[in-house]
Each structure stands twice: as structure tokens, then as C-alpha cells.
């Protein structure tokens, strides 16, 4: 609880910095607009202003600063405009409407969840295989680790287009990218977890004459739980990024990635920022839910005692 005040201070500082940055970012457009409306601005023509320093411009035209904070299609929309856009597109719209951000977020979230489920299940299965089969361990594990250094996201456009050309569209291609991205973190984390019991504990089970199955279910699996949840969190965040990037290449019309792309095509900066915040809320929600499950499970298992 004692960190609430510092966190709020940091957040407040971010908001203040944001407003402060909006002034020089938007001053040029504001002055051009003011000039058109017949107001007097300090360097009179647009050409003179183009080479001038943005902060200097703001200082020479203090009366036009309020206009920078409340601008349509601003280069940097101010927080209250972004949040009014968020409010308008979430609470004020019906969630079935194509203008509703909830609708777009659900499209992305459904692909994320499907992909995450596939990736996590396959990842755990491969990890179990790696732990129990030496040949698999020696041949697959180095590649699983090496693949984390590769920018896998680069293949996203290709997967979308290839699956499109064989007639698979919609949810599944995006989910496959999500699955692929969440797969490797889960494998690596889970292998680490299943191997975390030390030699003493394994020896103890051997003195009990426990079979490999019993060892797995009674020792390895419970020991791997903290590692599993940590890697699931990483995997969920990666899956969301995969789903968003998966929406870019086909110029999709639905989903958060599509909102980002459309916003950048038409210069609708508020739309981009609100999509970004929606993505942030979805990511935070996913990680938060997994964290909650982690706390409940680990309390039940007695890890925190």
C-alpha cells in the first residue's frame, strides 16, 4: 500500500509531461489554423514558421497555446481528447457496432485467446516430451532456445497471405501467429520448471520406489507451477502482439490492429491512441487474470507459506 502515492505521483507526472509535450507538437497546426481565421501570429507566414523552433513558436504566441490542447487530428492528441474518444467508442456505442472499440477488441482478443490456448497446450506437451526423452532434449531444446533470438514476428504477413491463398481466413491465421509466438516461451519456462526439483527430492522419490508417472505427477508437475505461470504471462503478452500484427498485412477491417492501420492511413491520431490504450487494457487484463490464477493456485498449494 505504501507505494500507492509514488505510483500516483509518477502517473501524474506522465500526464503533465504529455500536456506539456502537446504544446510544441501541435503549435504549428494551431498557428496555421489561427492565421486562416484572421488572428495575428508572430512569424506571419507559414514558410517562416516552418524553420522556426517549435518551443520558440509557443513562447512567442502564448495566446494560441490553449488551441494546441484541444485540436482535431492533432499530431499529439491530449489525454482528455484520447479518453473522450475512448469513452465515446466503448461506453456510448453499442458493442455490436463496427465503430465500437469493444467490438474490435473482442475480435483481437478471441484470436489471442485461441492462439494462446493452442500455443500453451502444445508448449507444455513438448516440454513434457523434452524432459522425458533425452534424444528430444538434445535435438529440440537448442532450437527452441535459439528460436527466441529470431524475430519470429516477421513471418506474420506470410502466414496470413499463405493461409488466405489456401482458403483459410478470419480467426485461425491470426490465432496461429499468436500460438507460434506464445509457444516457445512456454516450452522454455516449462522445461525449466519440470527440471526444478533437485537431486535430493528425486532421490527421495526413488527410495519410495515411485514410478516415472508418479514422479511426474507428484513432484515435477507441482514444482513447475511457478515457472508455468511466469511463462504463461509472457506467452499471453506475446500472443496479443501476434494477433495485432497479424491484422496488419491484409488490411483487415476489424480488430485493434486494423484500427491502428486505418488510423495511420487517415491521420486519425485519436483513433490510434485509443486503440493503443484498448490494447494496453486487454494486455493488462490478460496478465492480471493469469496473475490472479497464479496467486490462488499457489496459495492452495502452499507455496506462500
Amino acid at each position: 500500500m505504501r507505494s500507492v502515492v509514488p505510483i500516483l505521483t509518477v502517473l501524474l507526472a506522465i500526464v503533465i509531461l504529455w500536456y506539456a509535450a502537446a504544446v510544441p507538437m501541435n503549435i504549428r497546426t494551431a498557428l496555421t489554423q489561427a492565421e486562416r481565421d484572421g488572428a495575428i501570429v508572430a512569424p506571419a507566414t507559414r514558410v517562416e514558421r516552418r524553420d522556426a523552433n517549435a518551443i520558440g513558436l509557443a513562447l512567442r504566441n502564448p495566446s494560441h497555446i490553449p488551441a494546441t490542447l484541444d485540436q482535431e487530428r492533432a499530431r499529439l492528441p491530449t489525454p482528455h481528447r484520447v479518453f473522450s474518444e475512448l469513452w465515446n467508442t466503448t461506453v456510448m456505442k453499442k458493442i455490436t457496432s463496427k465503430r465500437s472499440l469493444v467490438f474490435h477488441a473482442w475480435i483481437t482478443l478471441s484470436a489471442t485467446l485461441l492462439g494462446f490456448a493452442i500455443g500453451a497446450v502444445l508448449g507444455i506437451a513438448l516440454a513434457v516430451g523434452i524432459v522425458h526423452n533425452r534424444a528430444m532434449d538434445m535435438s529440440v531444446m537448442p532450437w527452441a532456445i535459439a528460436s527466441q533470438t529470431i524475430p519470429i514476428l516477421a513471418i506474420a504477413p506470410m502466414i496470413i497471405v499463405v493461409l488466405n491463398s489456401v482458403g483459410i481466413q478470419g480467426l485461425l491465421p491470426k490465432a496461429m501467429i499468436s500460438a507460434y509466438l506464445s509457444f516457445f516461451p512456454v516450452v522454455v519456462g516449462m522445461v525449466k520448471g519440470l527440471r526444478s526439483p533437485d537431486a535430493m527430492q528425486l532421490d527421495q522419490l526413488r527410495t519410495y520406489n515411485a514410478s516415472r508417472t508418479a514422479t511426474f505427477f507428484k513432484l515435477r508437475l507441482p514444482a513447475s507451477v511457478p515457472y508455468l505461470f511466469t511463462s504463461l504471462k509472457i506467452g499471453a503478452a506475446a500472443a496479443l502482439i501476434g494477433a495485432i500484427v497479424g491484422e496488419l498485412p491484409t488490411g483487415a477491417v476489424r480488430g485493434l490492429g486494423a484500427r491502428l492501420l486505418a488510423g495511420s492511413y487517415y491521420g486519425q491520431t485519436e483513433q490510434i491512441w485509443s486503440a493503443l490504450f484498448a490494447a494496453a487494457f486487454v494486455a493488462a487484463g490478460l496478465v492480471g487474470i493469469i496473475g490472479l490464477f497464479q496467486r490462488i493456485t499457489m496459495n492452495q498449494m502452499g507455496f506462500n507459506r
Binding site: 505504501r2 507505494s3 502515492v5 509514488p6 505510483i7 500516483l8 505521483t9 509518477v10 502517473l11 506522465i14 507538437m25 499530431r75 504471462k233 503478452a237 496479443l240 502482439i241 495485432i244 500484427v245 485493434l256 491502428l260 492501420l261 488510423g263 495511420s264 491521420g267 491520431t269 490510434i272 491512441w273 486503440a275 493503443l276 490494447a279 494496453a280 494486455a283 493488462a284 496478465v287
Partner: peptide, 25 residues
Amino acid sequence: RGLLPVSNFMAALPIVGTAPILVMW
């Protein structure tokens, strides 16, 4: 105490999404 939780939160976000904004700038 203030920055660490915020940074941890930010590190988990899909920051790739800032790409269209930064390309615009």
C-alpha cells in the same frame, strides 16, 4: 517505488502499437 510498477506494466504492453504514431512523427 513509483516507477518500477509502472515500468513493469509498460514492459508487458504491446508497445509495437506505437509504431504508426512514431512513423507519423
